[in-house]
Design a protein around this nucleic acid. Structure first.
Length: 419
RNA sequence: CGGGGUGUAGUGUAACGGCUAACAUUCCUGUUUUGGGAACAGGCGACUCCGGGUUCGAAUCCCGGCGCCCCGACCA
């Protein structure tokens, strides 16, 4: 993509109404736009990152047997009444609305009940189990206090997968597989080294659950990490009984602030009992489906990456989720530079390398460098009179301070492309 | 929902109760530039969040509302 065509622009100044690093950098670099407190739109660069994150999650969900769907955002009151979750004293983050005829509706806070209800039409027999269904769908939560940029918002896309199994044993097998899938996701997104599977409270669903927590000062949770074992315990369930049951010792645990980037719950038969999702066993008995739920917020992940991996100059995207692989900068208005830069742009495109081409002719070198550092694309290639005189193109990784001059063959090799 | 802070061109800031609300940046015109947000000249852009009040006079003081940020509580 040519940067001259991109409708977003970078800003030199940080927004006055944002303190958090993720919002500051993402807004300055033109990835997101703030609509109101806790509500952000995704712009071309931000959407590319979000889609890359979603695709990694999608691949991992498909790999463990997930089938993708999209459930509706508008939900009936009756969907949530059997579990008593329509009640404002039970769930206080509803956005509720009405049809013209006064029928009450809710904007989906989550989808456990909706999918349980829907699956009644498709699951009848033990032969139909197990099934794993997921979606990327917007959740609306009327948080009393949105905060920390895109980390805690009122409207956000979540990947939520629901598992439907015939019994606890079958469920546990999938639950363990989902843990591995989640670890793969965080590793591929570039925060695996800072992300710990964390023993946590089960909320109102079950006694315990597992969270995936990424260590960062921007987090809202306190967790205790055993570095050697690679596992953590959330402060909310941090007690002797839990430590003993997990084989952990207090003296090995280090306190950290962390952000919850994913969680997995055993729902058991809470929803299937309440909503009547039953199946016939091999013996002809009727039994409730054993369920689990597995969430990840791609937007929050994007914010977490910014919090964890940026430097004083801007964002540093991991290659797997970067909006582009290469940022090609053309310096100066020299005719030969234009020709060489455009030629390289076409060649990289032909090799299916995603390139943001800064072809702007009226922008100074310094501004282009500053923009490039702020946007955070992993590889920067400079084409200028100087680079051409020195024998080609300057290539530099975003995480490195100095680049080197290479010819076209070396450049392709550097990027791992077959000529 | 408790507590604290804050609201002025698109953005970031300034302005003692008193002249036409200032500066920088963005943007537009032109010239010159092109390896770290370059230089010069000219120009556009504000119902100072909204509603009341005090005052000869309010961006400024007071009351109410709304927005936004932070701490806490909450968090399916």
């Amino acid at each position: 993509m040519k940067q001259s065509q991109l409708f977003t622009k970078t800003k030199k100044e940080s927004p006055a109404d944002e303190i958090s690093l993720n919002a500051e950098l993402l807004i300055r670099a033109g990835f997101i736009n703030k609509e109101m407190a806790g509500v952000y739109s995704y712009l071309p660069l931000g959407l590319r990152v979000l889609k890359n994150i979603e695709n990694i999650i999608r691949e991992e969900m498909n790999a463990i047997g997930g089938q993708e769907i999209i459930l509706s955002s508008l939900q009936e009151k009756s969907t949530w009444e059997p579990t008593n979750q329509w009640d404002d004293s039970q769930v206080d983050v509803w956005f509720k609305t009405k049809l013209k005829n006064d029928t009450e509706l809710g904007l989906a806070v989550t989808h456990e009940a909706a999918i349980t209800k829907m699956m009644k039409g498709f699951i009848n027999s033990y032969r139909d189990l197990p099934k794993f269904v997921y979606q990327f769908q917007t959740k609306f939560r009327n948080e009393v206090r949105a905060k920390s940029g895109i980390m805690r918002v009122r409207e956000f896309v979540m990947k939520d997968l629901y598992s439907f199994c015939k019994d606890e044993e079958e469920h546990n097998a999938f639950y363990e597989r989902s843990k591995e899938a989640y670890k793969n996701i965080f590793k591929r997104i570039g925060i695996g080294h800072l992300t710990y599977i964390t023993f946590a409270s089960g909320g109102m669903f079950s006694k315990f659950s597992h969270e995936f927590q990424t260590i960062t000062g921007a987090g809202e949770d306190i967790i205790y990490v055993d570095e050697n074992k690679g596992i953590a315990v959330n402060k909310e369930v941090y007690n002797d009984e839990v430590l003993t049951s997990l084989g952990l010792k207090k003296e090995d645990m280090v306190e950290n602030k962390a952000v919850e980037v994913g969680n997995i719950f055993t729902l058991s038969t809470r929803f299937s009992d309440a909503l009547g999702l039953k199946f016939k066993t091999e013996e002809g008995d009727e039994k409730s489906v054993f369920m689990g739920s597995y969430g990840i917020g791609p937007g929050r992940l994007m914010g977490t990456v910014v919090e964890v991996l940026s430097d004083s100059k801007g964002i540093i995207w991991p290659e797997n989720i970067a909006p582009f692989k290469v940022h090609l900068l053309m310096l100066g208005g020299d005719e030969n530079v234009k020709i060489e830069a455009s030629k390289l742009y076409e060649e990289l495109n032909a090799k299916n390398i995603e390139v943001l081409f800064d072809d702007r002719v009226d922008v100074n070198a310094g501004e282009k460098f500053a923009d490039s550092d702020l946007i955070g694309i992993p590889y920067r290639i400079v084409v200028s009179k100087r680079s051409l005189a020195d024998g080609g193109f300057e290539i530099k990784k975003r995480i490195e301070d100095t680049g080197k001059i290479v010819n076209i063959d070396e450049l392709f090799e550097f990027l791992g492309i077959q000529k």
